[in-house]
Amino acid sequence: MATNFWTSTHYKELLDQEEVDAVHNLDKQRGITLEDFKLIKLHMTNYIARLAQNVKVRQRVVATAVTYMRRVYTRRSMTEFDPRLLAPSCLYLASKSEESTVQARLLVFYIKKIYSDEKYRCEIKEILEMEMKILEALNYYLIVFHPYHALPQLVHDAGMSDATQLIWGLVNDTYKMDLILIHPPHLIGLACIYVASVLKEKDNTAWFEDLRADMNMVKNIAMEILDFYDAHKMITDERVNAAMHKLTAEEALAELGGGVDGFGGIVKSCGGGDSEWSWVLLTMCPRNKGPQQYGQCLVQEV
């Protein structure tokens, strides 16, 4: 149902981690590993967020677009659905379903502006064709629930209002993972409040217990979030580039043949591009700030 999560197709279509982590055979043949798979989805999440900021749509649209992109890759391969076209097309579709329609030509314009790399270029027609393919791949299930809606009330009730920005940043960052495909959104929201409580050294045990939510699940999600931040320290532009590079068959073959030209410089061109999205990594682990971190970090809350 449209606003009852428990009767919605979003709830009915929730997946297990293993299902989400299944790399499509066509992609495997190109040497894409699970790690590559996650890296590319992370990279595309940042791409969508960056594009969204240029065309000025709100966070909920970004979140829906990212969810669409991640849902598509549970059913279709990256070989068939080039992420560099899928990502902006998901944003295009999400802008319609979230009632903030963005014109395709505007997306095309900003893609050109943001990325000098030609592999990102696309035409209006390609976005429109991809929009229909996405509809099909999603089996026309377009409703997406997000943690945002319930968040202000929960944050207020938990007495965490002074950490609002931190919590919103954490929630935004969860879209860099596949959590939205696996867990009910309110549990993701609670997990972010939990992480924030730990960081702020605020004891919210009693409040959480009163909620009658599945606290084990909330803690598990919180652990996943922390693990993600941990793993993120190891992500470099080179690794993302390498993963993206495998998507282009010819180049992959050339590489097998003689290992020519190295990495395509795909991420290079968007250096710093990930800074727009709230990125609380620094807050979490300030001592690990290093030059080879993938993307920049935006401290929203210090």
Partner: peptide, 17 residues
């Protein structure tokens, strides 16, 4: 340049639920 009409998107989205 318009793609699927937002009306159709909205209708499908609701009807599927």
């Amino acid at each position: 340049g318009d793609g699927v009409s937002p009306t159709a998107i909205r209708e499908i989205m609701l009807l599927r639920e």
